[in-house]
């Protein structure tokens, strides 16, 4: 299978990349890992006139701590997250999810930010970031008027935008990114006493999740839950943040009954489709079970003092 013809540009600075985007962003696709984009191009679901390869831009591959956040930059690969000492130390949910992304070879190229920008509704990272209340950073050339084609009259004059993950993920394969913007990083708040966990049911390595559940909780000095994040993969038209279940947890003392209640809320909130991976009824059952189980794991980590 071969993609349609395209122009290939591989700039060596961010400025050059942003200039290309400012000039012809609406016909450009950005190539980071390419592990979703290239298959789509080969199937001709995507036929960009220009492919902008950002892999030769230095200083875009960090995983580090910046201003109270854990930062994952645009060229950090899934495999980098798996190996990162910073992630292992700082964020249990990300550390737990990373080894479940695709397969080990795909993880060597695919990127976290690329996965978010692509926004496949069955992607794992979007659920992780929804549960963690992440933010993404998008940059575009300054001093030029940028238009968003999807939202009537929406425009801005370039520079850096910080976007909450919920505002960023609009709908399946759709984000609030302007065609002239480059997503340079995703960042998640650090926490003192917390834990997170990702549960994924997959038929085989590399398959999409049959069901995925991301949870994150933080505990206060009185051992009550101060913050909770729950998001689901592959059981709705897009990754689903279960706000009602999160609200039910906050302010409460953690218990099996409480987590079972959160599981019931998540199970009721999802809307899975019956397909070759399982019936809707089965998936809905697993959502409840995984939510309960994942919260229990998150609590164990939070109580163990690991964060």
């Amino acid at each position: 299978m071969y993609p349609s013809k395209f122009d290939y540009l591989a700039p060596e600075t961010l400025e050059e990349a942003l200039a290309v985007l400012a000039e012809r962003g609406d016909e450009v696709k950005i190539l980071a890992g390419g592990q979703s984009l290239i298959p789509m191009m080969k199937l001709r679901f995507a036929e960009p006139a220009t492919l902008l390869d950002i892999n030769r831009i230095p200083g875009l591959d960090a995983i580090d701590i910046q201003n109270g956040h854990v930062r994952v930059q645009a060229l950090a690969r899934h495999a980098d997250v798996v190996r990162s000492a910073v992630i292992k130390e700082e964020n249990d949910l990300m550390a737990g999810a990373a080894p479940w992304i695709a397969d080990p070879i795909v993880r060597n190229l695919g990127t976290v930010c690329g996965s978010l920008a692509h926004h496949d509704p069955e992607g794992d990272w979007a659920s992780v970031m929804l549960a963690l209340d992440a933010e993404v950073v998008a940059v575009s050339k300054e001093g030029v008027t940028h238009f968003h084609p999807g939202a009537d009259g929406t425009q801005h004059t370039g520079g850096t935008r910080v976007i909450s993950i919920q505002d960023f993920l609009v709908d399946m394969f759709t984000t609030s990114l302007y065609p002239t913007e480059l997503l340079t990083e995703v960042r998640v708040p650090r926490y003192e006493r917390g834990g997170g966990n990702y549960q994924k049911l997959e038929r085989k390595v590399g398959d999409y999740a049959t069901v995925g559940v991301a949870t994150h909780i933080e505990l206060g000095d009185d051992d009550r839950i101060t913050k909770a994040g729950i998001a689901l993969t592959s059981v709705y038209a897009h990754n689903l943040k279960v706000t009602d279940a999160e609200t039910a947890l906050v302010g409460q003392a953690p218990s099996d009954e409480l987590f079972a209640e959160a599981g019931r809320i998540a199970s009721a909130a999802c809307d899975p489709a019956s397909d070759t991976r399982g019936s809707a009824e089965y998936k809905r059952h697993i959502v409840g079970l995984f939510t309960e189980r994942s919260l229990a794991e998150s609590l164990k980590i939070a109580q163990g003092g690991q964060s």
Partner: peptide, 19 residues
């Protein structure tokens, strides 16, 4: 189709030669 690029395994059906 896996080869090593700078020592790292990648699937070459999902990478362009120019990369």
């Amino acid at each position: 189709c896996t080869v090593l690029i700078d020592g790292t395994p990648v699937k070459t059906c999902t990478m362009f030669a120019v990369q």
